[in-house]
Write a protein that binds this DNA or RNA. Structure first.
Lengths: 159, 159
DNA sequence: CACGATTGGTTCGTCAAGTGAACCCAGCAG
DNA sequence: CTGCTGGGTTCACTTGACGAACCAATCGTG
């Protein structure tokens, strides 16, 4: 049995998972971010690579900008009119592990023919990159069984 | 600038991120899994802790079972009628990093008063647990800038 | 056996969200 | 002025989420 928090009787409001999903959990949002991490920045390119309806894409970009995950920056290539592009902010860049986690699971369980469509390599040494759970003491954990969730809710002392 | 794959001209169909989101990307799915990792297993408890409509919860549980992320196992406590509960499969347990990634981002950017509502500790040593990007050579990476995505699409040799 | 309580759902009407096609505007080329 | 392209908005339609009501199986009680 997994270590559980007294059969899960703590306050779920303010849960970080729910909060994050409120920001990037709508349809297409995480796929927009995938494209952003791949270097796609312009509306038309996003629309083409994603295949999302323009109205939805427009809305998702607006909320991601509003949330500070992307910024909309105008730029002008020489001899061309001014355009603008969507770029990851540091806040948005910190969603990288989330995308990688989703990708790794899909690579393991959904890959056709056992071959992942995209590999991540360390830019310096070229070795494949993975996400891992580690503790501050440097121990590597293999899964949720080795993890102890500890609630620190402000008002839950009377739990 | 992030390292990008020739301005992102590879085949997105079969993308593992999209595939994973097709399995767990609907509303409530990842929150159901959060509860599962916290040890909540019964329909009524899920419904209470999540606050999701029963119809939606029922549908999400059915698809998660269908996808092999959860199993529906009957059990009978002594002196009680038979019930059934939803348990994580190994496939479901491997979604743990995804949940942790979402939680860590929320802890960093959404926590009221800078205090995360839930802390993860290593069961053995009690030290806080985090998700980290590491390469096979053991180097720790700090973000997407140090990662090189390499497409391995079967039909994309003519990219 | 009938009665009510509990678990674990389904059904239904309503409202929000996603979808695709069409349209719109600015700026540049000719 | 016309046409083309990027970056959207508007609209009609379909799908999905929501909450309340209802339903079936099972148990303890009388």
């Amino acid at each position: 049995m997994l270590p559980c928090v007294s059969e899960a009787s703590w306050d779920r409001s303010g849960c970080s998972v729910a909060g994050t999903l409120a920001v990037v959990g709508e349809k297409w949002s995480l796929l927009v971010l995938r494209e952003a991490f791949l270097g796609v920045r312009r509306f038309a390119d996003l629309q083409r690579t994603l295949g999302a309806p323009k109205a939805v894409l427009s809305d998702r970009l607006a909320t991601l900008v509003e949330q500070g995950v992307l910024t909309r920056v105008p730029y002008q290539a020489e001899g061309e009119r001014q355009r603008h592009e969507y770029r990851l902010t540091p806040k948005g860049r910190d969603l990288y592990p989330t995308l990688v986690a989703l990708m790794q699971w899909g690579d393991r369980y959904l890959a056709d023919g056992g071959v992942a469509p995209l590999e991540l390599r360390h830019g310096d040494c070229g070795a494949p990159v993975t996400l891992q759970l580690v503790c501050a003491e440097g121990h590597r954990l293999t899964g949720p069984r080795e993890v102890h969730p500890v609630p620190r809710s402000t008002a839950a002392s009377a739990g």
